[in-house]
Design a binder for these strands. Structure first.
Lengths: 153, 153
DNA sequence: TGAAGCCATGGACGCCATCGACCTGCGCCT
DNA sequence: AGGCGCAGGTCGATGGCGTCCATGGCTTCA
């Protein structure tokens, strides 16, 4: 993981469909060299996936909400987690410091579906309560921030 | 936007680096046809970008936090927003229903940097208060959910 | 100082992106 | 009802790209 690797990561976070030839031009290496570096970054898990970012309204998932979950005292966190994991509406799931153990980002088509999802989560064993906030609009999302060299500074 | 477009979007959300030939095989069309469909989805803004998903720890951004912002009564929301927009640490920004007008996902390298960011946000004109919760671990993030045909059902 | 391993280079080859030409099915207008 | 026009598809060709391989230089360690 050197400066060139970081540069490659930044380029791929900006446009994951760049060709290796294009990446090579940008970092001043040959295409095979870039190919090998990117392959190693993937193998090491540094690059996890390449994803298209989508206008959610267009695919029928126009309602975004954030849900905080308070666990029962003595609840089995792994049980709660595995129950959450099978709900496809949950786009992101963070385990948090604070009263609310989990913070979710969820994506559904309608408010009615959101209501059903909340009910389902509240019924889950180990969940004491939830707190839901609806996003009225998304100003921006997943804006990539240039990486910093962890070995520098 | 038909079933094939939705399928293409799902495939690209799963692997944004799929070749057009591969996509064509999966949806049963020719490569040029797929190329044209994807181009139109991009032009229409349905596909916004292609991004590599990264292990944030590896690029020196291992601290994730969620910040809620309460605005001053009478604050100019556009001013607050443009102040937030220039802070690169803010990965996502939602305008919310509820007491907290904005909900942010932020990414920094250290707790010290998080502290500085919080101070900076609190000093911003129009911001009354903030509430920060730190993510201890990320269970999953940006998990793509298959799109639904908005014209169906 | 010598050896070994890692990595970039450059060439070769097969696949892919992409363009143009043609075809087909559908809607509309006369 | 028939013909025109368009949207969107396949097919074929070509140039560029991905990917593998052998070679050579640099660094590092004994």
């Amino acid at each position: 993981m050197d400066a060139i690797d970081l540069r490659l990561i930044d380029l791929l976070r900006d446009n994951a469909r760049s060709s290796y030839a294009e990446l090579a031009r940008q970092v001043g290496l040959s295409a095979p060299a870039v190919h090998e570096r990117v392959g190693k970054l993937e193998a090491a898990g540094t690059i996890r996936a390449y994803r298209a970012e989508v206008e959610h309204e267009a695919i029928g998932l126009g309602v975004t909400a954030l849900i905080g979950i308070v666990e029962d005292s003595g609840a089995d966190t792994d049980d709660v987690l595995s129950a959450l994991r099978v709900m496809p509406e949950i786009e992101s799931c963070y385990f948090m410091a604070g009263v609310e153990s989990y913070q979710l980002t969820v994506r559904v088509g309608t408010i009615a579906e959101l209501e059903q999802l909340i009910v389902r989560i509240n019924r889950t064993r180990g969940v004491a309560s939830t707190r839901t906030a609806i996003a009225l609009s998304t100003k921006w999302e997943n804006r990539p921030q240039p990486g910093l060299d962890p070995t520098a500074g």
